[in-house]
Design a protein around this nucleic acid. Structure first.
Lengths: 277, 277
DNA sequence: AAAATAGTGTCTCTGAGACAGTATGAG
DNA sequence: CTCATACTGTCTCAGAGACACTATTTT
């Protein structure tokens, strides 16, 4: 670790860590796939069919196709994330519904010991999906399901009664927590809430996305005016929904995602005063 | 790729990619270390002493100590970033100036072919440093220096005259570009501009940080009032600087970083209208 | 009929930005 | 002395949020 001769240390290190001879590192991709079901935020989880953490829930993921020496099967990291997502949901990767899923890199988790078997570096991706069918468990997964995020007891880390919390394998609770925080922030200054809706949606539907992700109710009237006032957020289709509100009310108008990539001004969440320090 | 039997495909894939037998992936850490020198944003670069890209400038970085089968020397990713930064700058990692450096993960770059030798996944880190001494080239680096970001011709990707741009090795131009954009955004809603200053600073010094990173001049009076109005951004020391402004004026007061971790309300850059779509 | 909802109008308060103005120190 | 600079005061305008109100649909 600490040597008085940096040059010797460096050359020694380079010789030792030439990956062609020595010291393998595994790289996996894990996906935090979020969607809205019944007005609640859900995450795609798989139940592990083998050790370690057998029987526990985990994020869908797997090894990146590295391509070996020839580099034949080498795949890019986002492609690996899409492939894992497609494998777990049973949907085809190219075209179709999965083409409408927003995917972005969340972060990389590589602490020693996070996988008890070996050194594993995991690149986590975050996906925002419209409502998808129930996944079909495949491969070594014993089960796969959309799980309500609220049922995992992640929000109040202190108030977790041990039996209440469904623990996640590896450091996936941390990854999911980071993904949720990223999602909450992204909804503030990007129009990505529309990625949770289908191709057409109403303003109240969009509001329910914000309420599900942020976990708090928003003022319907002010939200409505705000969304329409941000240039490029949504675009009217001219149509109206064929049903009124769930318990009455006029039929809301339909909108499409607009061409903005950033919301200006942003839609800030009400309760941020606490988390500033 | 597309097989009718997902179960066989998955188990086959798991057998093929068990990293203990097969298909090594290298993991490196690269650091985008930024600082302010003479009122201009600088990035720490090293000149490569060997192929590939021999003689070109690159971000400081190197292989992560994976720890082998036993996991003895395994290091965490942020530790690897600090180690690389310390090795390149010649500063000690524990304590001292490098302890004041802000470090955060930027992203992971793993496109096949980004390193011509083999499959390399690089975890990039972003560092905000106060003014540091000139680095000492060590190891296989032929040179190391703080380079003005403006001299690299990254801002206007179209208007690059070939001779003007100093190209960077690998995909480091992209990584640096992502780091700069992250830095610009971070200054908006976090107090991290203070990480570029020493322990004490004046409001005009803080403003010059914003101007260097954002590349545009700010209104001195409004900036002053704005910084003081954000709770927890800065904290008065009660002292005043021993010198006035560079070309006259009263002696500015001195401040310390406050306890806020987020700026509320945020300090938005003036010219964001263009980049929204 | 009753209740809930979609959408709009209006008022108030905060904050950003433009501008002016004063005091202070460098050259 | 001259000028740049630190800092404060003031004005205007945009936008967030609270509230009220109407029209429309479900139950």
């Amino acid at each position: 670790m600490t040597t008085p001769e940096p040059e010797r240390d460096e050359s020694e290190f380079l010789a030792r860590y030439d990956p062609r001879d020595y010291d393998p590192v595994s790289v996996t991709v894990d996906v935090v796939a979020l969607t809205i079901r019944d007005g609640a935020l859900h995450v795609l989880l798989v139940r592990r069919g083998g050790p370690p953490y057998e029987g526990m829930w985990a994020l869908p993921g797997g090894f990146v196709h590295a391509g070996g020496q020839a580099g034949a099967d080498a795949e890019d990291l986002p492609d690996a994330a899409v492939r894992e997502l497609a494998e777990e949901t049973g949907l085809s990767a190219k075209g179709g519904v999965i083409g409408r899923v927003h995917l972005e890199q969340l972060g990389t988790y590589g602490a020693p010991g996070r996988d008890p078997r070996m050194r594993v570096i995991s690149v986590a991706y975050l996906a925002f999906a419209p409502e998808l069918p129930d996944p079909e468990a495949g491969g070594d997964a014993a089960d796969a399901a959309w799980v309500p995020v609220g049922a995992l007891g992640l929000t109040e880390s202190a108030a977790q009664r041990p039996g209440t919390t469904r623990r996640l394998a590896f450091d996936h609770a941390r990854i999911l927590s980071d993904g949720l925080e990223r999602a909450r922030g992204k909804l503030e200054y990007t129009p990505l809430a529309t990625a949770f809706c289908g191709g057409e949606f109403t303003i109240p539907e969009l509001r329910s996305v914000y309420e599900a992700v942020w976990g708090e109710e928003l003022h319907a009237g002010n939200f409505h005016r705000k969304v329409l006032s941000v240039p490029g957020f949504v675009e009217s289709t001219g149509e109206t929904s064929d049903r009124g509100g769930r318990r009455g009310g006029p039929r809301p108008r339909l909108y499409r995602p607009g061409d903005a990539r950033l919301l200006h001004p942003a839609l800030l969440r009400p309760s941020r005063e606490e988390q500033i320090r």
